[in-house]
Design a protein around this nucleic acid. Structure first.
Length: 713
DNA sequence: CTGTTCCTGCTTTAT
DNA sequence: GTATAAAGCAGGAACAGA
């Protein structure tokens, strides 16, 4: 590990050059009544405007002169230092744009792979612009739906959409700050700025308005690589150095490829042979934790069968342990957790494909706690020291540096970037090691990671109970302790370090915690800030109708006031009144249609719903049928019909309401308030609120006025 | 034939 | 194309009872 650290540390400490770069964006004329994104391979319509913004100060819009438009004035927001040029022909506009692209070493776009650069390339072909003048090279993968990648013949093309869309980047580096990877929502979240909000259609815009709209997109795109002392640019360069990949590839590949590359490089650096997937599989069978000896049924180490629906076909393995919650309301609950549990286990227990079930005879008799496997004591494993190095340098060096007040703001933010880059790898490592598709996948490694995790949390629960502390709940790496004293917490923490080799620390304290008997479901209210943690409840899911969320937030306001049982008894009546009131409101006109809307995304292509057709898919099918009929009656073109059919692709969110009638669902766009199925919605509200009322010990019968059972006796 | 229970598919969240 | 655990709704098969 020492040797590796010395070799590796330079990539963090070598300053990152701030390279000159150009952002660009194009606008295309789209036909009347046609709101589809133009197909870049056909490049059928004119490019009417192209904007450029560069780190050297360039701000430029190239605009095509069109019939019926006259230049009046610039938009009031159009910057003083920006220039606007007009071109008589589209060909000239493109050739001059290409001249700029040749000039910059790095070109930034937002979605340039799938649109801007691809469109420009094909449009240039169509206009018979000489290939030698065209700086763009379009690489296309195989298959119809495969994504294009656009290269520059001289220079590097960074399509930042690809970067921000990457789940590891959005999740770990930006902690889910933006909801969807559109230029507008990313800019809003990271820059606090939005795109120019236009009223008219692009092809109707005055030159001045179009120029500003077009320029603003390039300004935002460049700014995304420059804000916060070039955080994103620095992150890109750091990730390239860590993964040993060129910018073009790193930006466009997923985390699994990055991690694969790190480990392939490390093998080659050491002159190790890289094993085949099958070679690892043959030597390290595994599967002992998740399968009984008869190879049929799945039995967890806690002696219980895993939840139905989780099939163990293929090479799945047993995961984390979740403590059965103590239902009811609790006060002063301290949550302790293991900091980055899985990476710590990988490092501390020396887990790696070559060290788990190693061939040394003397290691065989020492099975590691929580696993049926032995682990090498002679050599450190490659997974263990790489993950260990990332974890240790982040926690012990870069994280403290990023908070060091004696350093300049600029230095601190640089260290912060490094620390975030490391976080990406640390958090993703376990997931990648557990993936069948990872070329160095080794089942016993994945099983050991989670197995040691299960052992650790279970031992911790036992230890707490020995000390007389009640454990109310826990999930994977955390324990919820009922009113522990400082000394009890310290004793548990010290014990963990000594016996488990893992850091167990106090995370947060809830003044109020409501648990139902459901796992992964609770409401906790923080001691001082009164901040509310809501986990897993139906009201939190994005497919829950708004009116239920509204009713729930009313309940929440009352819960925030509760710190002890007396206050709770008083709150009880108010809660019951709120629920009653909301039940009455359904179908009475008190809520708007949008309040009833349910959002569910299509996880597959429409035609792939063969085994069963869920409600939202039926709603979509009915919608498409009705729209096509309407279009045909209006003698619509073939393209318009295709547009209707293409509207609901895989990944699109369907908004619908529960309706009366055989289909039971209607896309909101076609629905009216009378279509609402009130009965279904009352059931929905009931089950959503029951999750909370359960924990509060209030039954739904009580609310409906039917008193408890003993009232009848 | 009718109502209930159980299982599967699907989507979404927790960690 | 980073993992498993778990919740909850909808739909339909299996089952029980008339």
């Amino acid at each position: 590990m020492q040797e590796f650290s010395e070799k590796f540390i330079d990539i963090f400490l070598t300053p990152i050059p701030d390279v000159k770069r150009l952002a660009m964006d194009i606008e295309v004329k789209v036909g009347e009544r046609d709101f589809r994104i133009p197909d870049p391979r056909l490049a059928a319509q004119e490019i009417i405007s192209i904007s450029f913004v560069a780190s050297d100060g360039l701000k430029l819009v190239y605009m095509l002169e069109r019939e019926g438009f006259n230049f009046n004035k610039l938009h009031e927001s159009f910057p003083n230092d920006a220039k606007l040029y007009f071109f008589k022909t589209e060909k000239e506009l493109l050739v001059e744009s290409f001249r700029i692209l040749w000039d910059y070493p790095v070109v930034i776009t937002f979605n340039g792979d799938n649109f801007d650069l691809s469109y420009m390339f094909h449009r240039a072909e169509k206009l018979k612009i000489e290939r030698d003048l065209n700086p763009i090279h379009v690489k296309r993968g195989f298959g119809i739906m495969s994504k294009a990648e656009c290269d520059l013949r001289k220079g590097v093309h960074i399509d930042v959409f690809n970067f921000f869309f990457n789940r590891s980047i959005s999740g770990y580096a930006f902690s889910g700050a933006y909801q969807n990877a559109s230029l507008n929502s990313i800019s809003a979240a990271l820059l606090g700025e939005k795109k120019y909000a236009h009223e008219e259609e692009i092809h109707d815009m005055e030159y001045g308005v179009l120029a500003w709209y077009n320029l603003k997109d390039s300004i935002l795109t460049l700014e995304l690589t420059r804000f916060n002392n070039s955080l994103v640019w620095n992150l890109i360069i750091l990730l390239c150095r860590i993964t040993k990949m060129p910018i073009h590839d790193m930006i466009r590949r997923q985390i699994s490829t990055w991690i694969q590359n790190i480990f392939y490089f490390e093998h080659r650096r050491n002159n190790f042979l890289i094993p085949r997937r099958s070679e690892i599989k043959n030597v390290k069978k595994g599967g002992e934790i998740s399968f009984k000896s008869d190879g049929q049924k799945i039995l967890a180490s806690n002696g219980q069968f895993t939840a139905p629906g989780n099939d163990f076909d293929g090479q799945k393995f047993l995961g984390a342990y979740v403590v059965a919650p103590v239902a009811g309301i609790h006060y002063n609950v301290v949550v302790m957790d293991f900091s980055s549990l899985y990476p710590s286990i990988i490092k501390e227990f020396n887990l790696s494909y070559e060290t788990v079930l190693c061939p040394h005879k003397d290691d065989e008799k020492h099975l590691v706690k929580g696993t049926p496997y032995h682990i090498c004591t002679h050599k450190m494993g490659i997974f263990a020291y790489v993950v260990g190095f990332f974890r240790d340098t982040r926690v012990k060096y870069f994280k403290p540096k990023s908070a060091d007040k004696s350093l300049s703001q600029k230095q601190r933010s640089y260290y912060y970037t490094i620390q975030q880059a490391l976080k990406v790898f640390i958090n993703a490592s376990y997931g990648v090691f557990g993936s069948q598709n990872f070329p160095l996948f080794c089942l016993p490694v994945a099983e050991s990671t989670t197995g040691i995790g299960q052992y650790s949390i279970k031992q911790t629960i036992m230890k707490a109970e020995q000390l007389g502390v009640e454990v109310l709940y826990g999930d994977t790496d955390s324990v919820f302790l009922s009113n522990p004293s400082k000394s009890q917490m310290k004793e548990i923490s010290d014990w963990s370090k000594k016996e488990l080799d893992l850091d167990l620390e106090e995370e947060k304290t809830y003044q109020f915690l409501a648990l139902s008997q459901r796992k992964k479901n609770y409401i906790g209210i923080y001691k001082d800030t009164k901040y509310v943690d809501i986990k897993g409840l139906v009201v939190k899911k994005k497919n829950t109708p708004e009116f239920i969320k509204k009713a729930f937030s009313q309940l929440l306001e009352i819960l925030k006031q509760i710190t002890n049982d007396d206050e709770f008894q008083l709150a009880r009546k108010e809660i019951i009144a709120i629920v009653k009131d909301n039940l009455k409101k359904i179908g009475s006109g008190a809520f708007a249609l949008e309040d009833y809307a349910i959002n569910i995304s299509l996880k597959k292509h429409l035609k792939d719903y063969t085994k069963s057709v869920p409600q939202h898919v039926r709603a979509v099918n009915a919608f498409i049928e009705r729209e096509i009929k309407k279009a045909q009656d209006n003698k619509a073109s073939k393209n318009e019909i295709i547009a209707i059919k293409n509207r609901y692709q895989k990944g699109v969110v369907v908004q619908f309401i529960k309706s009366k009638g055989p289909i039971g669902a209607k896309v909101t766009e076609h629905a009216k308030l009378q279509d609402i199925n009130s009965k279904k919605y009352r059931e929905l509200l009931k089950s959503a609120l029951e999750q909370v009322l359960d924990a509060l010990g209030i039954s739904f019968e009580e609310i409906k006025g039917i008193k408890k059972m003993d009232a009848f006796i």
